[in-house]
Design a protein around this nucleic acid. Structure first.
Lengths: 347, 347
DNA sequence: CTGAAAGCGCTTACAG
DNA sequence: CTGAAAGCGCTTACAG
């Protein structure tokens, strides 16, 4: 019954070695073992080798939580997001990882539930002191609520949101919508529609401003009926489905809009499908420039999502190392990329 | 200079309250405070209220690391992935979050770097004992290496990988490719191509098997030239670009393949673009059924990514609560979803 | 229901 | 270069 023996042997080894075990076996003090693993201070080569050998043999490695408590450093960066499964976050996360992988930090993710009070959840997270620094992606709150977070005195960088008390990295949403609308108006289209999403969401609010501004410059009165959204409102309406629904509505209008600016590429994909299904067509511009956009011939407003994640993380790490660093507000300017979806022949 | 006063006041509060501060101020022992926050045991209503009031006033909340060390529970689930910014992982992650948000666990993410030794990285992560349970997504290793992990005696669930020593949740890749190929063959196509990716990647290997099996059943000899991949190999070639490149190659073949099975929807998107750019066309089937597929009219092999994440997490939590639970291997059967990309008229 | 006390596994001045 | 010792902020039997 060798199998059983092996098993019980494993069971005995269940309790992992601690720094004491290593110290004893290596014939040194725990302080020395600790120093070796922090490859800090000056430890004799001999001691170091011995410790490493014993540690390897016993499969020892310092336990993160004990280290964290004793050193008062968690070595963790926490990303706080509203929903995880979303193109924008995925790209931003990619950038965050690119930066973080160069360092030696753990990455934790905290999902803000849309059903509970945001501020409460955020404060709860901060109070636990799980991480040394926080990246908030697309978390939108009123000024006073952000202000209220300053007292935690912990490094925070905002992505896709702005508040003067914290470092932030965002894109000028109004500018993006303005450029897209302007483009259409300059092409001679007058009835330019906006394929929208949840009105109360921050990006929509800002983009609506840019849309109106462009109309205004061309002395075209704002027409509320030209701002259309779908009925499906999961993910605040930033989905293929919602885009499809909205475009169907537009195509049924009489007269039809002449051109359309979409709140996201993903909605634009739905919109393209709607045009295809109905056989009707109008030029559209997306928003984001996700990787797919190029392959779908979708004209779009480019947001440098990956760069934003990378840069924000760099910024956060800088602040973690130097809390006196002046607060920086970085605002990217989105660019219009023209592809086939804006041409008269369509896709 | 009120502003300055407020600031210095905040600075003084920099050191967060501990359980001792709360205990003293509430006139109870630290044990009682601890009990209140673990809403465990029996604490008198009076004491509870008092503690909670004081804690709220001082902005106190137990510190995660200290709790973790003392209780020997990290309350964390760690997801180990090769790349973070990828459609498949994003969807699986979504499922994981769906499940985890019902519980009270932290989510950590560890990125395996493709440049370093996988096993080493994995072992390092386990040794740190950061999490109570681990979800490995698309991490592929040889049997012995997985075996070697058993000694850590920690709950692990594999997603998109199989090893008999751990719980696993995967999809039958051979089966998926088999079904897609079979579909084409039954339609009467003989020269069915496979738009591939990095040959050494596990899913590609398995899918190639299914592809061959179907050919074999129809007594069609395997033709290596019909297995084509792109030149861009980032993300192992599972990108729009690689799909585009591969399809261009196929369309230049003489004679052209009659139909094509793609290794992922994202590659299929690139392939569609290639067909459009060249004006040539052949029926294709994707793989994954990402949300976009429906809107692009892409026929595809459906993998229940979100479900897999959800189910795997449930499985992991179960094991964390009961290490005696028998090992379970869950294998999903992928289904073929027919849309317009397989019809003769194309998309 | 409650408290005193030991312990979780490390780090880090301090003294040598 | 090295060790003894205090401390990080909690949890949890144990005894009452």
């Amino acid at each position: 019954m060798t199998g059983v023996c092996v098993f019980s042997f494993n069971s005995l080894r269940k309790v992992p070695a601690t720094i004491y075990d290593i110290a004893k076996k290596a014939g040194v003090s725990i302080a020395t073992v600790s120093r070796v693993f922090n490859n800090s201070a000056n430890v004799s080569d001999k001691a170091k080798k011995k410790v490493l050998a014993v540690a390897d043999e016993m499969g020892y490695h310092p336990q993160a939580f004990a280290q964290g408590l004793a050193s008062r450093k968690s070595n963790t960066v926490m990303v706080v997001v509203p929903v995880i499964s979303n193109y924008f976050f995925m790209e931003v996360l990619g950038g965050i990882q690119d930066k973080l992988s160069q360092q030696n930090y753990e990455l934790s993710i905290f999902n803000i539930s849309p059903n509970k009070d945001i501020q409460e959840q955020v404060e709860h997270v901060l109070k636990r002191r799980w991480a040394e620094g926080y990246l908030f992606i697309s978390i939108h709150m009123e000024e006073e609520k952000w202000e209220n977070l300053e007292k935690y005195n912990v490094p925070i960088t905002l992505i896709d949101e702005y508040f003067q008390g914290f470092d932030s990295v965002s894109v000028d949403n109004a500018q993006g919508a303005y450029r897209a609308t302007k483009h259409f108006l300059e092409q001679g289209y007058a009835r330019v529609a906006m394929l929208s999403a949840l009105e109360s969401s921050k990006p929509i609010k800002d983009r609506l401003k840019g849309y109106k501004k462009a109309l205004n410059e061309h002395e075209i009165p704002f027409d509320n009926t030209l701002v259309v959204k779908g009925d499906s409102m999961n993910r605040d309406g930033f989905t293929e489905r919602a885009g499809y629904e909205a475009m169907i509505k537009m195509l049924e209008m009489n007269p039809m809009p002449e051109a359309c600016l979409c709140a996201s590429d993903i909605q634009a994909v739905g919109a393209l499908k709607a045009m295809q299904d109905t056989g009707k067509k109008l030029p559209i511009i997306g928003y984001d420039d996700i990787e797919l956009a190029e392959y779908m011939g979708l004209s779009t407003i480019r947001q440098p999502m990956r760069d934003m994640g990378f840069f924000a993380t760099q910024n956060l790490l800088d602040r973690m190392n130097n809390s006196e660093k002046p607060i920086s507000q970085t605002i990217y300017s989105p660019e219009l990329t023209i592809r086939s979806s804006t041409s008269v022949n369509g896709v």
